[in-house]
Amino acid sequence: MEVRDSTVARTAIAPSVRERLWGKSAGRCVLCARSVIDDTTFWHDINVGEVAHNVGASEGANSPRGDSELTAKERSDEENLLLLCHDCHQRIDSRFHRADYSVDFLRTKKAEHELRVREVTEDRRRRCRGGHQRAGGHDPARLTARGEAHSQIGAASEG
């Protein structure tokens, strides 16, 4: 496995940016959708997601996708970052696979993944009356109506 030089100067990624990436990605790798939360490979649960740069963290030929006009600060902005599992992060930054993972490809994959997460979570909210649910995730009015319907069906089949 290729070992990258990680001594390049980088701009720190703000904790709020990291939190937004985790939230928008639903704790899943943007490329393979593998969960990166609570991996038990290490005797205890840990988060194994990695924040990766779309445009490389630094400029130059040794930085994956580093040829860009973005400043160091812009390279650490949310728009240039994505949540990946370790395997996908290693693959996109490997010199053997860099041509397969362009800036545009990664940007598109990130947008598609975040849209899918939004659609799934918003669909769930729409199914709930007014976007709210009781603890346990059940709408009592809907359950009551369903229970009454089942009672009527049961009574009709008995008679």
Rank of each mutant, 00 (worst) to 15 (best):
E114Y: 11
S102H: 08
A135V: 13
S6C: 11
S16Y: 02
T41C: 00
L143F: 09
K109G: 06
T144L: 15
D45M: 08
Y101E: 08
R118I: 13
R65P: 01
C85Y: 02
R98L: 08
P140W: 04
A111I: 14
G27F: 03
A141H: 09
G27A: 04
S157H: 07
C29R: 03
D38Y: 00
P64A: 02
A14W: 03
T7S: 12
F96P: 02
R28G: 00
S157K: 11
L115R: 15
G136T: 06
R124F: 14
E59C: 05
E74N: 02
R75S: 07
H132F: 14
E119N: 15
H89L: 07
E50K: 01
S76P: 01
G49I: 02
L70R: 10
R10Q: 05
W22M: 14
P15I: 05
Y101S: 09
S58R: 04
R146T: 10
R146H: 07
H44Q: 08
S68Y: 05
R118Q: 13
E19H: 10
E19P: 04
R75E: 07
C88S: 09
E2L: 13
K109R: 14
H44M: 06
G60F: 00
N54S: 02
D38R: 04
L21S: 12
L21K: 06
L84Q: 08
E114Q: 15
H89F: 03
R127N: 10
R18A: 08
F105E: 14
H44E: 12
N80H: 12
S25R: 03
N47Q: 09
E79S: 14
T7V: 06
A141P: 01
H132T: 15
R4L: 10
R65A: 00
H113R: 13
S63P: 03
P140V: 05
G66C: 02
A33L: 01
N80K: 11
G131H: 05
A145M: 04
G154P: 01
E148A: 08
D5C: 11
